[in-house]
Computed example of a mutant assay.
Amino acid sequence: MSHASGASGARIADYWLHEQLPARATELAHRATHRMLPRSARIAIVNPGFAGVRVAEVQLMREACVLETLHHSGVPRVFECGVHERRPWVASEHVAGTSIEAAAAHRPMPVGDALAVVRDAAAVLAHAHHRGVVHRNLTPRSIICTAQRAFPVCITDWGEATMRARRTQSAGGGDPDGLAGGAGVLPRGIDRMVPRPCDPGGRFYRAPELAGSDQCDASSDVFALAAVMFEAATLVLPEPVQRFPGVPAAFHQLLASMLATDPTERPTAAAVHAEATRLAELYSDGDAAIEEVEVELVDISRAPPAPANLGWMPPDHMAAPAPDTQRRRRDS
């Protein structure tokens, strides 16, 4: 099928490989173009060092199954998959855009932009949670702003996604996240070997209940989204959660609720989407970065006022003598 195994310039099936892309240690990824179709793709194939390792193969195929199942414009599409030199490979949509990590690398994101990302990313997560999928490893690298796609935000890196979580029903008997008792969407048996998230930087954005455990539910994704966007808006991790100048109180309150230590106190992704939509409309013109402060305006075009009378007068013996008295003294 090709004359090389994963090197740039090689070919896998009908795809020509180009520059290498970031990928997990168990995989190699390249930007690729279809031999006949005007299609740009991301080809991910199991790393030769992990050939035959079941966990690595299952992780790659799980991500493909998740992407195929979600059917959301904020999730990369899967084109096809196969086996090359006894290693599974997946061709998915190559998402070109700016990650949150890059957007907030040197300065905080404008509040209006940050709210828009929270709104759109929460919509993607709400769709995934309704289908019974928990991302489990949201980081600033996995949330990408994509101006060229139909949906302005794309969430990538679904390799650690799981369906094992089941959230307790709310007091009203409803299931806001669609996880309680929902039918599985992954092929039978493919979700039994779920590796724990291995991105070292991702630990800063994981919910506290995940410390020392891989058990999570939809609320863990809500926490991670808030941690990522709190840092993007302030350049500081939410440790602890504190107010920052320029961040509106309503936006801070939304992030603080998403970062609640108790998972049951966090809003659902659908509720976050609704509230962020409302706030994004209020601050879409960029005025959100302006804090309301009471100030006294001074007209500097006028002459400065005379200094105030402090009530002090010189003693009588220090006062200057009258003019006629000075004249009589000179005459004498």
Rank of each mutant, 00 (worst) to 15 (best):
F151K: 06
H84T: 01
R141M: 03
D316K: 10
V228S: 01
P315K: 08
Q169T: 15
Q242A: 09
A10G: 14
Q215N: 08
V298S: 09
L125G: 05
V90P: 00
T162A: 04
A147L: 06
L259F: 07
N309C: 07
W16V: 05
S219C: 07
P267N: 07
A271Q: 13
D299C: 10
R31E: 14
E296M: 08
P314T: 04
A274F: 08
Q215D: 13
R119P: 05
P140Y: 11
A233R: 06
L255T: 00
H30T: 13
G132F: 01
A10T: 13
V241F: 12
I190N: 04
D221H: 04
T261C: 03
P38N: 11
A25Q: 15
D324N: 12
T146Y: 03
D177E: 11
L186S: 04
R164V: 03
D316T: 14
A260K: 02
H18N: 00
A270P: 03
L310M: 12
A121F: 12
T162K: 01
P304A: 06
V298I: 12
R11K: 09
G132Y: 05
C145I: 15
V133Q: 07
A103M: 14
A7D: 15
V241W: 07
E292I: 03
R192P: 04
P208Q: 11
S257D: 15
G181D: 12
H3G: 06
E296D: 09
E160S: 05
L67M: 09
S220H: 02
A232K: 08
A147D: 13
A91Y: 07
R119Q: 11
Q242W: 07
D191T: 04
A322H: 08
H3Y: 07
V222A: 02
A227N: 12
A276I: 05
D191R: 08
R206H: 12
I190Y: 12
Y205S: 00
G82L: 11
A121K: 07
A51G: 14
P248E: 10
H71K: 12
D191H: 01
D214A: 11
T146V: 14
R62E: 15
A41F: 08
V133C: 06
I144S: 01
A165V: 11
A123S: 04
P48A: 02
A308L: 14
A180L: 11
E292Y: 13
S8R: 09
T268N: 04
R266M: 02
A288G: 14
A123E: 10
R302A: 10
M61E: 15
R136C: 03
L60H: 00
A56C: 10
E85G: 00
Q59A: 08
